[in-house]
Amino acid sequence: MKTNDIILQTVTKVTLFIIILFSIHLFFAGHYYPGGGFVGGLMTSGAIVLLLLAFDMKTVANILPIDYKYMIATGLLFAVGTGAGALLFNAPFLTHAFKDVYLPLLGKTSLHTAVLFDTGVFLVVVGVTMTIIQTIGEDE
């Protein structure tokens, strides 16, 4: 008998964006409220795992043609690069800088290099989680 999971797939298509939005919100809220790169990344990979549950691995690989191992390396590059940026100014490693900038639409926003570091964390968490799940999933 052929199973038909149209309900699951339709619900996934709707909830996926809500989960992704929530994870992005968590990521950017990290500086002032609970959240940050780790939980944001975990929730993003949760969304991708939901995709994997609703569809099969091949379809998801077509939707998101990403090699997650490179994602890990890119994330590490972000984190180390942010820290090493301080070396250019002869400041101790990991010295961060921030500035209040007036952006159109968003208004007065404080931009902080810690966000770049957090981006690194985000990418590594997504990369590691997805690598683990994909590797176990593909294993025969």
């Binding site: 191992k69 590490l76 590059l77 180390v80 090493a84 002869n90 490693f93």
Partner: peptide, 24 residues
């Protein structure tokens, strides 16, 4: 240079990251 004692940690770390890209 203030970061000299960082280098023996930082150089292998940066190399490790670079080597992930060169895995093949």
């Amino acid at each position: 240079m203030t970061n000299l004692l960082m280098l023996p940690i930082l150089i292998p770390l940066a190399t490790a990251i670079l080597l992930i890209f060169l895995a093949k």
